[in-house]
Design a protein around this nucleic acid. Structure first.
Lengths: 196, 196
DNA sequence: GTCTATAACGAGATAGAC
DNA sequence: GTCTATCTCGTTATAGAC
């Protein structure tokens, strides 16, 4: 990364995002400080401000990266799995991966703290949920046409229910620190869609 | 409230709890301060410390009162509604009432912030969910025996799914500030139990 | 039971040297 | 790009008067 590099040092910025992401997913956006991040990254608070001017900027970058990564995971699911049911199972697998690392969905956490967030972060959070909804809606629609997925409401309403159940399962599983608690709930949800 | 009153002034303590409860439900436990409470109640921070020595004490009192109130609502549902399905509908109505006031379930909010809570508050949060689970399990069991409620898993697992879906529906409806978004999801959930 | 005053600390943020 | 040093403000909490 030498000549012509317009970007700041991507290595440090990425490490900052990694640390901050975990902090938000575990403690919430109002539950961590620049001091926490700088200590874990191994730089000073001042250096942190060089990469992300304010906490709101850091928060926004966090959501953007998280949403991008999620979108690319969804694209992988579209590419790798033939059937809608398999894509749906893959989708719940993404959540399980988060739960196994003792974390809450970044945007689920931020949804709880929504009223305290600056406007740019708010918009990014709703965009994340909207994107999830659109992807799920498509999968559900296709599964219904194939006759492999069954649900009484519209694909859009059902997509919202799926997101709510998975986010809620993460939320209430947190106090018990038990991934199995989440998995059992996720399995029940899928069972309801595949053979109702 | 004159002679023999061993209790502190219940009026002020209750007003403090009312204000703090809303603040936690809207902004989270890490999103409000004693200054916020004292300003809204109309007393100083020092007076607040007289009633609740520390923020952890206030938080614990908050959960206890919330859980007691919830338990009494559940008792009312048991007394007032003959059928399990009606009790279940009443249960989702309790959540809807919270959503309509633009709030998150107190314990749902605290579940998100769980890792930052002092131990006594943590235990109170899990107790709340355990109590909900037990009540729902009983209702589901009864509905199954009557033949009015239908679900593939155990009553206990299904109770957990119901709680997760309702808490999650509150959570993801928050960014949109739209009670209808919650209601549609809750209706779908109930529909799945009453005629599967 | 409520107040004023203040302590003690941590938060987000900035200036300017290297 | 990172540092030291500092600022300002908000936070929880306490001491002691009324």
């Amino acid at each position: 990364m030498a000549a012509g590099s317009v970007r700041e040092d991507a290595g440090t910025a990425a490490r900052i995002l990694d640390v901050a992401e975990e902090l938000v997913q575990v403690r919430g956006f109002n539950g961590f400080s620049y001091a926490d991040v700088s200590a874990q990254v191994g730089i000073t608070k001042a250096a942190l401000h060089y990469h992300f001017a304010g906490k709101a900027d850091l928060g926004l970058a966090l959501i953007s990266r998280y949403a991008d990564r999620f979108a690319s995971e969804l694209a992988k699911l579209d590419a790798g799995h033939a059937t809608p049911a398999a894509r749906l199972a893959g989708y719940t697998g993404l959540y399980l991966h988060v739960v196994r690392r003792q974390r809450m969905c970044l945007c689920g956490m931020l949804a709880a703290e929504y009223q305290t967030l600056p406007d740019p972060m708010r918009e990014a959070v709703t965009s994340f949920f909207d994107a999830n909804e659109s992807w799920l809606e498509k999968v559900l629609e296709e599964g219904r046409q194939e006759g492999t997925l069954h649900f009484p409401r519209t694909p859009r309403d059902t997509a919202r229910v799926v997101i709510a159940c998975l986010e809620g399962a993460m939320l209430v599983a947190r106090p018990y620190g038990d991934p199995d608690r989440f998995q059992t709930m996720a399995t029940s949800l899928l069972a309801g869609l595949t053979r109702e």
